[in-house]
Design a binder for these strands. Structure first.
Lengths: 214, 214
DNA sequence: TAAGCGTTCCCCCGCTCGGGGGAGGCGGCT
DNA sequence: AGCCGCCTCCCCCGAGCGGGGGAACGCTTA
């Protein structure tokens, strides 16, 4: 197991290195103190796992993670944080990190975390997982309750990008009926036009990316 | 710690019960063999945590989870699965489950999982976490690359529901310029109107629900 | 019975939007 | 120098869209 440690604090690097080197067959092949050199070291050392601090002077850990992942490296990036701040977790996930854990984790769990990401799986610490789940479940309960059945039907068609005549054809009603429903939708959602209605549909979770794609 | 165990297999219920009862102060206050009775038992017993199997005859665990969460119960639902199938994890999260773990977990980890969800946090087993992260990171690389910088600016404003005059004001250009960019966007994205352009923006991951909210 | 709501349909009007042209300046590339 | 892509701005025009009315029918509820 080849590991690269990235943290601006030499003491933290030493501590992490001591923990990881205690595992037989594991070696720390490189260390870096900022994002730019981290990217360079990974390109050179071809590690299996990168332990990446978020907050660093110069290029931060998230940008470095993004560059490493986009470079096509096989290295799995495990992002480490000092505090349980949720604000970074979504950015880290989008950057392509394989995991997101507390820096101050018991050695056995840290080793286990490295093992997990090296195996191609992922993990988050519990507070982040809750945030992620809420991100999925949260918008669900915003149900746009004032809309009638038929209005919801029309809003679904609106969210597919159909014009009034097209919606009329699909729902087997006249264009005037569709216009009535659209007008009701605009009023109830307090928006000005169909585009804003579609945005509300997406933002509220009424429709989701990928919903209507065959 | 008050716990309800839901599984259609009595043997599994016994096994889980034995593990959980070994913790001092923990008690299994009810058991259920299907979703409907699970909802009833939870309503009656007011547990802290519900261990919920997914596959059950009659009402399945996901629907039961949804009903329990919507009922306003304080109980945290920990969904258990036999196989590492990802297909249920998103549904479970949307249903409001606090966690999603393998049924066949070592007793110490299972107890730890219960402790985590009881504390209001969440957890997923690693394969699911990977799926969740990919769900976040995946659409990211769809970049609508043909759009120029300025066109992307305009598309972002479009996706906020702004009219052409509003976009012109925000970008400090004339309405005619905005119209030019919008026309270019429509052509490049092969869509007919601004509404469809916004839909493409959402579906491609160019903008995401929650991105532009104050 | 009367009231209310949801669904369906109709008219007119004003306006933004989208499509068709075009034009000038600016920077990079060859 | 020439070319080309990007950004900027301008004209005309038609069609769809949004807003304002209204009206019929069936259904549930009071």
């Amino acid at each position: 197991m080849r590991i690269v440690i990235v943290d601006d604090d030499p003491l933290v690097r030493m501590g992490l290195g001591a923990i990881l080197r205690s595992e037989p067959g594991w070696e720390v092949v490189a260390e870096a103190g900022d994002g730019a050199s981290a990217v360079a070291e990974v390109r050179r050392a071809h590690p299996d796992v990168v332990l990446m601090d978020v907050r660093m002077p110069g290029m931060d850990g998230l940008e470095a993670t993004r560059l490493i992942v986009e470079s096509g490296s096989a290295a799995k990036v495990l992002v480490l944080t000092t505090f349980e701040v949720d604000e970074y977790v979504f950015d880290a996930m989008r950057a392509g990190a394989a995991g997101f854990v507390l820096k101050r984790l018991p050695p056995t769990e840290l080793i286990e975390a490295v093992r997990v990401v090296a195996a191609g799986e992922s993990l988050l610490f519990p507070a982040s997982t809750r945030a992620v789940i809420e991100r999925f479940a949260g918008p669900e309960d915003a149900e746009l309750p004032d809309l009638t059945e038929r209005e919801q039907d029309v809003l679904r068609e609106l969210a597919r990008g159909l014009s009034n005549p097209e919606i009329a054809a699909r729902l087997f009603v006249s264009v005037e009926t569709v216009k009535s429903h659209v007008a009701a939708i605009l009023t109830k959602l307090s928006v000005r036009d169909r585009t804003q209605a579609v945005i509300v549909a997406y933002e509220s979770g009424f429709v989701r990316p990928g919903d209507g794609i065959e």
